[in-house]
Amino acid sequence: MSLLRIENVDKSYGDEDVLHDVSFAMETQDVEVIVGPSGSGKSTLLRCVNRLTEIDSGAIYLNDEEIHSLDENELRRRVGMVFQDFSLFAHLTARGNITLGLREVLELPKEEAVAKADDYLDRVGLADQGDSYPAELSGGQQQRVGIARALAMDPDLLLFDEPTSALDPELIGDVLRVMNDLAEEGMTMLCVTHEMGFARSAASTVTFLDEGRIVERGPPEQLFENPEHDRTNAFLGELSGLH
């Protein structure tokens, strides 16, 4: 039984094909990194998994349950998401960002929610920032609150949508450290990211997506050292040229 199984998923916006016959599976504790040029459908794929976007055809299974047979709020409770632009609730403190879901979705009593929120803030190294509003935090701190917010819901799977690409270079490290810790603790993660260092050290599988199709998929060593396809090679070459 796979934790997440994506079968023959197609998605188009109007005439534009965004995903074409995408299939793969992830096991519990896998860290899957998806790379690919912009417009290749990476973010759309993530959003299909928690149904922020609906697929046109195919099927997605979470723990062998087709996600469209689940209540969408329940699905999203079980599949956390971390956004490129952090998307913290601007009117709530770091703590409030975490407790909102705990209180309204998991219906925890207030004290319990606060204790849990503080616990998760501590895990991402922000124990002293519980009362800060997002605008008072640096990008790296905001993103760590974003991770804590998703994590506190106790999800089966965490989706990361380019979590570091809106950050200044010196702030990326803190976020990657948290993500590495999560991977080591056995969190199942599906990440769209161009952080090749993270992909090498933490990923169990790397998938190269181009023009809505999976071009190549394999363990990071194989994909980075010995890619089968020229396109993979060219893209990775461009990336490493940038970094």
Binding site: N50, L52, N73, E74, R76, R77, G80, M81, F83, D85, S87, L88, F89, A90, L100, G101, E104, V105, R149, A150, M153
Partner: peptide
């Protein structure tokens, strides 16, 4: 994006 984020938490 604020509403999207709220929905992604399960609200």
């Amino acid at each position: 994006g604020q509403l999207t984020a709220a929905r992604s938490v399960g609200l």
